[in-house]
Amino acid sequence: MKPKLLFIISLILCLMFSVKSYSQLTGTVVSISGTVKNALTKEPLTVYVVAYTEDGKKVNAARSNASDNGYYSLTGLKPGAKYKIVIEQPRYLKETYELYVPYTTKYTEYSKDFALIPFSQGTAIPLPVPPFELKKTKLRFGIESFLEPFVREFVSNKNATFEIICYPDAPGEPTENLKLTEERAKSLMSYFISKGVEPERIKIKGNSSTDPQNPPPVEKRAKGKRYIGTTYIKILNS
């Protein structure tokens, strides 16, 4: 290896070590703040926001304030570390956010808003991202991350039962729409079963007409922004 290249590598390593050491010596602190709200009603919530290290050690906790738009501020994080920011609240799905804090010698504040999904009997929860492409019945690539909170809850809570409700993408032939939406619901049911949810705890429902709560837009959408029929997870028993 050429001497010049060795010098550059050594210099980079020294700089990295210096930043890490300096941040430890000066006690550089990093914070994360934002709001916590009900994902459906947008109502601000009062909950505990807790930070854990990678190995599960509790670092600090903060309480959001419903009277202050659900605002929270969690401090005590350190540069060069990875954290899990966790919110566990009765009657809501557990929320987890992973945060990596790069090495720094300056005070840094990250921003993260949380929208907690209510989990109570009778609640119909619209999936925030359509799990299907237009007129398709196969689950779209990457939807697993949006379904993970539901999987986690249904696997751990053996008493919970739910119904998958799918709506078509557009008005059309009722028979075809019903077939499309039933196949979509079956695809989601198969996914939950593959993750360990017992089939007897799942009901499915297709529809021949579009969602009355979230109908297709009257005006033409921008290119690439297609309307996809809504999919709901309705909690029958929690």
Rank of each mutant, 00 (worst) to 15 (best):
V155L: 14
T175M: 08
M189H: 07
E173G: 00
E183T: 03
P174W: 08
E163K: 14
K186A: 08
T175I: 08
T161N: 09
I164Q: 06
K186W: 01
K179D: 07
N157M: 11
E163S: 13
M189A: 14
E176P: 00
P171A: 13
R184I: 01
S156L: 12
R184K: 13
V155Y: 13
L180F: 06
T175E: 15
K179E: 07
Y167N: 03
E173D: 15
E173N: 14
K186H: 04
S187V: 05
A160K: 04
L180D: 06
N177F: 00
T161S: 14
Y167D: 02
I164M: 10
A160E: 12
E173Q: 06
P174N: 13
E183D: 14
N177R: 02
T181V: 06
I164A: 08
A160I: 09
L178Q: 15
A170M: 08
G172V: 07
P168R: 03
N157V: 10
K158M: 10
P168Y: 02
P168V: 04
P168L: 04
R184P: 00
I165A: 08
L180I: 09
E182K: 13
N159I: 06
S187L: 05
K179G: 00
S156T: 12
P171W: 06
K179Q: 10
T181N: 05
N157R: 14
R184H: 05
P168E: 05
K179I: 04
E183I: 01
E153R: 14
E173R: 05
E176G: 00
Y167W: 11
D169N: 14
N159P: 00
F154I: 07
I164N: 07
T161Y: 11
F162A: 11
A185K: 01
E153D: 11
F162D: 08
N177I: 01
E173P: 00
P171M: 12
V155I: 15
C166Y: 02
T181I: 03
L188E: 01
K179L: 07
G172K: 08
V155R: 15
F162T: 08
A170C: 00
A160Q: 09
Y167L: 03
S156E: 14
S156N: 13
M189F: 04
F162V: 09
R184S: 03
I164H: 06
F162Y: 15
L188Q: 02
E173V: 03
T161I: 12
L180W: 05
Y167F: 15
E153T: 11
F154V: 09
K186I: 03
N177V: 01
C166N: 13
A185T: 01
K158V: 13
R184W: 01
R184A: 02
I165K: 08
E173H: 06
G172C: 11
E182W: 02
Y167E: 02
T181W: 00
L188A: 07
Y167V: 01
A170Y: 04
E176M: 06
G172N: 12
E183V: 00
F162I: 11
D169C: 05
C166D: 05
A170I: 03
T161G: 05
